[in-house]
Amino acid sequence: MAPQHKLVSFTLNGKPTQKMIDVRASLSDMLRNDYSMHSVKEGCEVGECGACTVLIDGETFNSCIYLAVWVEGKDVVTTEGLTGEDGTLSDIQQSFVDEFAVQCGYCTPGFIISAEALLRENKRYTRDELRKMMAGNLCRCTGYENIINAVEKTMEERLEAKAKG
């Protein structure tokens, strides 16, 4: 079967873009191969590990089991998109650094995206609720302890900032 290509137009990390994409490609393959979004990691390619998590129109998806062509007209955010133009880390990225939530780092960008999605809700969750909401991502290094700490810390910071108006 000869590869078929299709023009895909979408927004990546805030910027409109379009490219001819192999219709068989997964979103994770497209983001890695065509856009060099190296934060999108592949750990299983069947939607089990969560390392490839991205935001699509504000919702988390495993990009390895999401066809690239499906992002037509949608808004995609990867971990690269959370970092400021000047390289400044976002609050949740900084918390992962400060709370020692990073070890090998391979699952880290996926966790940060899952965290960002729930943090955008601006609600206070218990640690148990946070654990449940982060359960789509697997980590073998950290025991999740410092990851939950980092998410909880940023959640409190954002709630405080919101309360201050």
């Binding site: 979004m37 190296h38 934060s39 999108v40 990867t78 971990t79 690269e80 970092t83 880390l89 990225q93 900084q94 992962f96 650094v97 400060d98 020692f100 990073v102 780092g105 880290t108 960008p109 940060i112």
Partner: peptide, 13 residues
């Protein structure tokens, strides 16, 4: 702070 943490939280690593 880990020397590699900033690169690992941004996808630069």
């Amino acid at each position: 702070i880990r020397v590699d943490a900033p690169d690992k939280v941004t996808g630069r690593a």
